[in-house]
Nucleic acid binder design. Structure first.
Length: 411
RNA sequence: GCGAUCGUAGCUCAGUUGGUUAGAGCGCCGGUUUGUGGUACCGGAGGUCGGGGGUUCGAGACCCCUCGAUCGCCCCA
């Protein structure tokens, strides 16, 4: 007797209503993505490790401790993708997709991060993803955000707001960063232990620290707006006025930053409003969709400077917010109440399916209980096949025109 | 990587200060009843109490380790 192997920690076997909610998210995304004319791409699940290490940033937690990396049999270091953007950027460069620029692409699938699992957070998780590559104009940001907004609305998710910020261009961002280091460095002793560490590693992150010791300094911290170049300021202005024109509601979030090194200019997250049902459902995993502009990424992979914007959203998190998506009942259940009618049951089943009705058969277990079983399952109609006085008896139980439809097919 | 709570049938859970063959409801299977139908009754299968070690005459209950889940922190979608 061998023990049954367990599922890997942080992976999920999604079934039933959860699987329906998951599929609903993907189907809605696919529909909206076509409305906006984003082209579908399928990407490899693994890449050379350097694809992620060079683009995401060697010092980020994702690269330094959360990647599933391994050597293949040829001795090459490969990594299960922890995000989509880097792989899509690599594909853009290696496949000559420049010829299609500006290129709007969308995809979805599994991602892998070695993190501690918790609510709405898994080691194998799934995202929907949209990118516009080779477009420097703020209009691209607007287009991308309008699409994100529509996806969320069509999913029926309420109480979620677009939080928007700009990180400026490379120089603005560096100047801001330096100012933050100086500002927080002066009060280092009073900051939380985590933030003291963030001071050299990731100073922007002090801004969204949850620790009250940090928060009292955050309000008066230097703002990115003080460091924006005229161009960066104009760019952000164009994005915000474009969003207004598109009817996308947003709020300025001055301390919103991105975790990955490659972001420039626009940065955004869709976050549930405090106290909303959505916020309660997600626990501490508040962001349901996040992204921004990554004009510096292509260069880090050895390509020409190429402007781009993108976002990704966790399917599991979205699925938690779309409500219960029950599995649809069958149009018809064929009940074979006597084993001698098995062939007739199979034939009937075939006719129904050929006519486009969803159908399944109940023909096992105690013959007497089969009909009750069908009633319990809850189909729109039930076709019962039984033997009465030596004759085959066909009985249809259904409401209204469904009865007529089924009648016409099976008689 | 850090902290807290939890882990008993397929599911939801009982299980008294450690004390005989570990229980219930639902679900599943079978029988009877009803007989154009979601009834009722009876019976059955299914658990080495997450795994390993320890304390004890005796552990599902106590201790240690481990695996997993949940909720936070870090980080992030």
């Amino acid at each position: 007797m061998s023990k049954t192997p367990q599922a890997i920690r942080g992976t999920q076997d999604i079934f039933g209503p959860d699987a329906e909610a998951f599929a609903f998210v993907v189907e809605t995304f696919e529909r909206v993505r076509k409305l906006y004319r984003f082209r579908r791409v399928e990407m490899p699940v693994f890449e050379k490790t350097e694809v992620f290490a060079r683009s995401i940033g060697e010092t980020t937690d994702i690269v330094s401790k959360e990647m599933y990396s391994f050597e293949d049999r040829g001795g090459e270091s490969l990594t299960l993708r922890p995000e989509f953007t880097a792989g899509i950027a690599r594909a853009y460069l290696t496949n000559g997709w420049q010829q299609h620029a500006p290129l709007k692409v969308a995809t979805h699938g599994p991602l892998f991060r070695y993190e501690r699992p918790q609510k709405g957070r898994y080691r194998q998780f799934h995202q929907i993803d949209a990118e516009i590559i080779g477009a420097a104009e703020p209009q691209a940001d607007v287009e991308l955000l309008a699409m994100a907004d529509q996806v969320i609305r069509e999913l029926g998710i309420e109480g979620v707001t677009l939080h928007l910020n700009t990180l400026g261009d490379g120089d603005s961002r560096e100047a801001w960063r330096a100012a933050l280091v100086e500002y927080f460095g002066a009060v280092k002793g009073e900051l939380s232990e985590d933030s003291q560490e963030r001071l050299d590693k990731n100073p922007l992150r002090i801004l969204d620290s949850k620790d009250p010791r940090d928060r009292k300094f955050v309000a008066d911290a230097p703002k990115i707006d003080q460091f924006l170049s005229d161009d960066a300021r104009a760019f952000f202005g164009a994005v915000t006025s474009g969003l207004d024109a598109a009817g996308v509601k947003w709020t300025r979030a001055e301390s919103l930053v991105r975790g990955l090194d490659y972001y420039r200019h626009t940065a955004f997250e869709f976050i549930p409003d405090e106290g909303s049902a959505a916020a309660g459902a997600l626990g501490s995993q508040s962001t349901i969709l996040g992204g921004g502009r990554y004009d510096g990424l292509m260069e880090s992979l050895g390509g020409h400077p190429t402007p781009a914007v993108g976002w990704a959203a966790g399917i599991e998190r979205l699925a938690m917010l779309v409500g219960d998506k029950g599995e649809a009942p069958a149009d018809v259940i064929v009940v074979v109440e006597d084993d001698s009618l098995m062939a007739a049951g199979v034939t009937t089943l075939g006719k129904l399916r050929a006519a486009g009705l969803t159908a399944e058969m109940i023909a096992s277990g105690s013959p007497r209980k089969r009909f009750d079983k069908a009633v319990k399952v809850g189909a729109l109609s039930i076709v019962g096949l039984s033997v009465r006085d030596g004759e085959t008896n066909l009985r249809i139980k259904a409401e209204g025109d469904m009865a007529d439809r089924v009648e016409a097919i099976v008689r």
